[in-house]
Design a protein around this nucleic acid. Sequence first.
DNA 1: GCGAAATATGTTAGCGCTGAGATACCGAAT
DNA 2: ATTCGGTATCTCAGCGCTAACATATTTCGC
Lengths: 334, 334
Amino acid sequence: MTQYEVPTLAHVAKLAGVSENTVSRVIRNKGPIADDTRSRVVKAIETLGYVPNRAAGSLASSGSLLIGVLLPSLSNIVFPEVLQGIHAALATTAYQPMVGVTNYDANKEQDILSSLLAWQPAAIVTTGFDHTDATRRMLDNSRVRVAELMDIDAEPIDVAVGLSHRQAGYATARHLIKRGYRRFGYVGHDWVADRRARLRYEGLCQALSEAGLTLRAEQRFDGPSSTMAGRDTLASLCSRAPDIDAVVFSNDDMAVGGFFHCLAAGIAVRERLALFGFNGLDIGQVLPMPLSTIRSNRFLIGKTAVEKLLESPTRPEARVVVDTGFDIIEGATA
Amino acid sequence: MTQYEVPTLAHVAKLAGVSENTVSRVIRNKGPIADDTRSRVVKAIETLGYVPNRAAGSLASSGSLLIGVLLPSLSNIVFPEVLQGIHAALATTAYQPMVGVTNYDANKEQDILSSLLAWQPAAIVTTGFDHTDATRRMLDNSRVRVAELMDIDAEPIDVAVGLSHRQAGYATARHLIKRGYRRFGYVGHDWVADRRARLRYEGLCQALSEAGLTLRAEQRFDGPSSTMAGRDTLASLCSRAPDIDAVVFSNDDMAVGGFFHCLAAGIAVRERLALFGFNGLDIGQVLPMPLSTIRSNRFLIGKTAVEKLLESPTRPEARVVVDTGFDIIEGATA
DNA sequence: GCGAAATATGTTAGCGCTGAGATACCGAAT
DNA sequence: ATTCGGTATCTCAGCGCTAACATATTTCGC
């Protein structure tokens, strides 16, 4: 080995005085190895600073220790949290995640998926059920395990882990009705991209309708959710419908923005106008009045998904749906 | 090809009636190809649903289109933003990022780095200058390109992209002094992990000292930064040192928490107590009073780093330092 | 109209590793 | 002693692709 050559298995094998295959087995902890041999090999690896070439390994074994992860966005803190759960579940294993960001675009998802599949991942973790036909076909052909996260309101390809957003919306309305609110408003964001926000909205409307109520006013910001969008959209809603007594927001980011609007406009939160979010983000719970909202267990969703996937290398007969549930956080704003 | 076999180059080549190499060249857009041949190949690829095996490609060409990314955390929104910049710069290329999360732990960074290097990435993007010796050695041996992000207050391995945190701290103090504040407090978080927070602190102290001032009181939360930590730590600082007129926070998360404390405790922000953060996060700018802070250009840092790395596949002679700068956001809290 | 350059494609030898099977050695049971 | 099963190791082909070179065909300058 010259000074400028990256060491390979062969170099390690030669230095340790064993065959390449033996080195390989030491590294992968596979098959019986004499203690003496093992320590010689380990020493050789350290001496050379050998780093295995996984491309070669993956090629030879036609498989890899990669988990492909497809997330719609990283600016919405919810998804980094899911990713943390995924990392947590993988921490004790030899698997590594490989992350792609789709910007809520099914075609982009398809592109990224194909480049992820090119690495022969052991499994794919993706978000929601909105996939192109080509995406579904690729997933089927590759026969990798697939987890679809966040949502359980549809039939999964293999595993789904999440919560029923429809039920969450429904529960929101029931909770607010029980607390005496009657004149409801809704502040949302672009739900072409965010199908789950729409499901919550539908659940909300259904519960209202069952109680003989309707939304007095609603307004959707035409773009992704953000605190600023929540603040401005609530401002606009209030000027159009000053008589509402409770506003449901599409999520906590929007709701926190709404809270700031109330603060600036001198609207007494809860007494004059109740605010309700979704997600249970930290930021909502640190407000001078903790935000009333629903906790979705993002970390748990990521973690559970990976655990389920690693249970078996091949798809089981039956599809699996894991409901990670949700809790109402009473808070002080509704 | 039987029904349950994944198609390879050979299958495509046979179907299109050309050699494997020709197919490979069509896929990689390399070398001259007759239009007629190209379309036959493309059609064959589509017919078979062929997905190239990158492990094989990477092995054959001893290189890959991967960029290894090492981030200390995903819960601090700053890093997802950097990652977005990285994604943005890669979007027009065939490169893919492969992300690892180190939890601010240099040993974990080392472990993850070695598994990233096992995929023969074209470049590594990491955070800060705190690496173990083994990490430095691995990076040197592999001779991949390396970008160290966020910070430019030390000598980089190859490329550094970020801002001078020392100067940012210094500028904070100068700004506040100019506005008439004299009795300073500091609220921070665990800076064993977050070296950059400490650099800002040092710059701050230096500027104060040059102006004949000192920190009247300071308190550090023993854990990662968060809104809640900021709120509670400011509360504690205020009870110990009620006479201060300005508080510098280690970052915006902490500062927003501080703002909430003032709100809840009825402290008039700016009139009685000025608040100053760092980062220029959205959340700070949506408060009823926009937070006075310093904008660090996270997205730009990620984007620039990737652009610099892709300029050349090998390390240039001279090390490169890109200062993405910072701006003072005047805001309304200081 | 001939050689040189440009264009288009084919051939071959690995890249570094792992799976399958072969081999060698040992102690225990017959 | 012979067989046997277990343990430890080796041999070797080949995963799917690409680099390098070889070959064929066309184009063009003069």
